[in-house]
Design a protein around this nucleic acid. Sequence first.
DNA 1: TAGATTGTTAATCGATTAACAATC
DNA 2: TAGATTGTTAATCGATTAACAATC
Lengths: 215, 215
Amino acid sequence: MNADLSEIAVSRPTLRRLPAYYPFLKQLREQGREVVSCTHIAEHLHLDPTQVRKDLAATGIVGKPRIGYHLDELMTALENFLGWNNSQEGFLVGVGNLGAALLGYDGFAPRGLKIVAAFDNDPGKIGQTVRGHRILDVQKLPSLARRLNILIGILAVPAPAAPAAAELLVDSGIRAIWNLTPAYLTVPPEIIVENVDLSASLAVLSSRLAASMQR
Amino acid sequence: MNADLSEIAVSRPTLRRLPAYYPFLKQLREQGREVVSCTHIAEHLHLDPTQVRKDLAATGIVGKPRIGYHLDELMTALENFLGWNNSQEGFLVGVGNLGAALLGYDGFAPRGLKIVAAFDNDPGKIGQTVRGHRILDVQKLPSLARRLNILIGILAVPAPAAPAAAELLVDSGIRAIWNLTPAYLTVPPEIIVENVDLSASLAVLSSRLAASMQR
DNA sequence: TAGATTGTTAATCGATTAACAATC
DNA sequence: TAGATTGTTAATCGATTAACAATC
């Protein structure tokens, strides 16, 4: 577990923005650049330069006046701060289309999440191999989760199955649930639930579109 | 297009919370209840009652002191405000696992987004039928988008293909892009981009988990 | 009526943005 | 040196929460 992540409480907005800086920095690095200023980053991502400076400061990086930040240093600071060098293992529950997409997505491992096993309750799926992962019977989840000391559950089951699956995860000693279903989960207060809320995102999209059409 | 959506500028946080109220209200309605108070909603969703009251006020709903809100009225107000009764049509670009999951997901139509066509550039996929949708050649997208006056593009291609796909959408007259890829899109300022940012969500999850483990 | 709840105004809190000294 | 940029403090802005009158 990365100590940096919780050394100082970093605001939620900052935490959400930090991962977005990385791809741009990587791109600059690939172009051969060695340093970058906040102004430059802010311009590209349509943010305020001061905000970028404060966000980056959260990672502990120190820049040079008149120069900016050393790219390699900055990228390493981001990786360390976000725990990307310190992977957590997670179990995926539900291997439908979304689950299969998650299994096949190669962007999680470099961002500190390693999916080590995938579970389903469909006898037609159990035993099959999807994207290199053998699908296991969800009944085996509790014992395996305790044995491997898994802390993260990734929920990708159909909405109606979500509450029961969440309960199973909690009973298996999992501490955090990444909820990719539209269901609202009721769990004990010590369990962390992070919702990927497509409805919310869609509502913002619709509203912004409506507003732009009116002009 | 629903006028309510842009009548008064509603704050982003409110807009993001509103869709989450609905499933709880629906559940209460199915249990035969006819009214609900803010206190009750707030308790269930772990929010502040005043916040709930202000959020709901944005939809134009009027409650009754000592009673609360009439459930049917409140649900209708939410549906209208969020444009759920006034569907927009969208094109899906990219029918990999994620795209297939989106095509199969029945939660978009009731939330105002109807996927009317799906596109891919893989000759092996074009012509095939996925979840009842025939996959079309992405080269046909521009003419079809203009003919049907499509305003929303849903981007579910692999990250490296995202910038080109976004450009195609923009050139096809699309006004809003729902970006489900991890790529950062650079588009003209009048184009609305709404990112479903899994990295950001994952960063928050990791950070909260790290903080909770330290205690 | 008494009391729970709404609607609204005021206070607080936290994040963003502006200003500016320090520095290379 | 001059000037661009960092780091930081102060000001502003906006969202959340508290307080309370109105109401059924």
